[in-house]
Design a protein around this nucleic acid. Structure first.
Lengths: 375, 375
DNA sequence: GGCTACATTGTAAGCGGTTACAGGGCTGTA
DNA sequence: TACAGCCCTGTAACCGCTTACAATGTAGCC
């Protein structure tokens, strides 16, 4: 803080060479005589020289930083939400997003990149400008859970490589990485109908702007119908990804006189936990009276009572693949725009009425389905 | 991607002024004639000009980026760990750290900063160099959970403002923000002994390098002794912050013939969940046969059966305060080095045998204890 | 020994802004 | 009318590093 850090000029002076030579020695690209290189290295050592990444970025155009933008959930109108904003954030925290972020950070670090986090308030998507200004800082952008409208994505993608993480959307303007919600909900529906004889089912959504939530709801509904079941409108409940949200909507649902369906699938595990709690509070037992399932397979929920039947997806792999895709775009700008779909797996546990057998989970097949799209 | 984005030169040319004027109009500091400013603004509008943050950073020295460094837990030797690295990460994910990160990001965004994430492998702390190179990119650094040794912190702090987040440590070279582990564990011990008549207790650690884990263990032990109880060495179990870890060590403990203590406090909630699972699997009931408590109060665990008695701390406030402290240092470099201790709160629920009353949690006192230290 | 060719190294022009300093235009006053 | 003084605006250096191009040194060859 006191004295400004040594620059390439200081090193050059100390080693008795020009800055160009120091730069070449640093990047070890061009030819530098071994003895010269040694002198330079020694000088750098003595001065504790650390190259300035920003200056390097300015002149080379490469910043070794990847941006990751996610929506900051602002839970409003939730009857169980606490009034302090802070607590609301807290409540909505520990979501699947965090695992994705970790996976992305890990892979980015392996490839030599840093991750720049940037959240966009979900109700206040003025974020376009802030996103544009990231443009100068990062080499590429990963957008979680549909932060922008397609037109904005297209606009952004013209300035900088973009990877989209979410939902159904196969954006024409960017690479999309998503999880196979379709297949996931279909296998769940099949299990519920075939094995547990479910005929009337229900669904509890995440936040209703989320493409993942929408995709899961839609897929579940059509799958249930495909297998001969039904979902009444009154059993399609809108929550907000949180346990408190799940609890609230289920408590409200139980106030109604309509008979409950035989099963509720939830858009994520946290929601399922809240739903089960509300059911228990109302005197109903899971899975005896009603089946409840989740989505994500966050590690905690298999310790629940009953252990949660859910869909397993690997958030960290999702994050990693997103980074890989982005870096591939950086290395080869002409890379085709495409959609990458990651596999999911039905994990059957106690909450649907199956045996409560918690075996060490087998490694999920790391197969990545590549679906080439018309660029 | 095609054509390079417009620069200040383009704007200047289009507006018929010099770049200096454009810059002044941009930063609205110096005096610019309204009519001139309008011309400039119009030109920026037409060109869709977005100032290049990197160039701005290079010349002004201010980057509007804060770095946050955390340890990436690498769970090894855990009998329940899965062999795929990815899964290990997954398992260890969804930790308290994530909430802290969110809180930090949120506050940073409010103040106009971005957050640059950087993880340091906990077994491979060669991270010093990478941290040093961040020096050029970020304006300040937040170090989670003691990433570096004190001497390295001191070294780093000489180059860039540093805020430490963790444990006991009142580092002489940086601002420290931590949670009041001492008070937390003391109130927990007091509750267990006074209310539940516990005389023999146990503790399950997080990862043993973590200062938070160490602080909690030490504080719990001395508090238990202060209130007349004891902790046998055989009941001080080493886990790794994860549910699987808690499950594993408790399962191992149950193999031994030594009688179990009446209560186990765990270093975090996830661990407690695993511990309870192992106890149940061994035929013991919580809280009837044994009391188990957690730490953090992550939102899910109050939906557990039994709901977890735990210590509530606000991770997002922790993150926010860290950012506030860091920004304060940036604004006033002469700010005194000090330690900020955040309050905790004992949350009594079912797992210690108290009534299972889940009331909406009251907002935690936002009082921040400032402890001035000799700089 | 003189010349060519390649390996090294130096010079200097950016990268896209900020900002100290200088200069031009106006207004007010003597 | 001349000049001091304030407003605005322009010029150009600089932030720290990369790199095209020029310059130098040296080795190989006739």
């Amino acid at each position: 803080m006191v004295d400004s850090p040594p620059t390439i000029y200081d090193v050059a002076a100390r080693a008795g060479v020009s800055t160009a030579t120091v730069s070449r020695a640093l990047n070890s690209l061009a030819s530098v005589r071994p003895s010269t290189r040694a002198k330079v290295m020694a000088a750098m050592e003595e001065l504790e020289f650390v190259p300035n990444v920003v200056a390097r970025g300015l002149s080379s155009g490469k910043h070794w930083i990847l941006g990751l933008v996610f929506t900051r959930a602002v839970v409003e109108g939730n009857p169980l939400a606490h009034d302090s904003d802070t607590l609301v954030v807290e409540e909505a925290s520990l979501l699947y997003t965090d695992i994705v972020i970790r996976g992305a950070e890990m892979r980015a670090a392996e490839l030599g990149y840093s991750l720049l986090l940037s959240s966009a308030d979900e109700n206040h998507p003025s974020g376009m400008t802030s996103m544009l200004s990231l443009t100068g800082t990062v080499d590429g952008l990963i957008l979680l859970d549909r932060v922008l409208r397609e037109e904005d994505v297209a606009y952004l993608a013209r300035r900088i490589p973009v990877v989209l993480l979410a939902g159904q959307g196969d954006s024409p303007s960017a690479v999309t990485v998503r999880v196979d919600n379709q297949h996931a909900m279909r296998s769940l529906a099949e299990h519920l109908v075939r094995v547990h004889g479910v005929t009337r089912a229900g669904f509890v959504t995440g936040s209703n702007e989320s493409p993942d939530s929408v995709a899961r709801g839609d897929a579940f509904r059509s799958a249930i119908e495909e297998f001969g079941g039904t979902i009444a409108d009154v059993d399609f409940l809108e929550a907000d990804w949180t346990s408190a949200g799940g609890e609230a909507v289920m408590a409200a649902r139980m106030q109604r006189s309509d008979p409950l369906p035989e099963a509720f699938a939830c858009a994520n595990d946290q929601t399922a936990v809240g739903v089960i709690y509300a059911l228990n509070a109302g005197g109903l037992k899971v899975p005896e009276d009603l089946v409840v399932t989740g989505f994500d397979d966050i590690s905690l929920t298999r310790y629940f009572n009953p252990p949660l039947t859910t869909i397993r997806q690997s958030g960290s792999i999702l994050g990693q693949v997103a980074v890989d895709a982005l870096v591939a775009m950086l290395d080869d700008a002409e890379d085709v725009k495409r959609t990458i779909v990651l596999p999911t797996e039905l994990v059957v546990r106690g909450s649907c009425g199956c045996v409560e057998d918690i075996e060490p989970r087998p490694a999920m097949a790391e197969v990545i389905i590549l679906k080439s799209e018309v660029g």
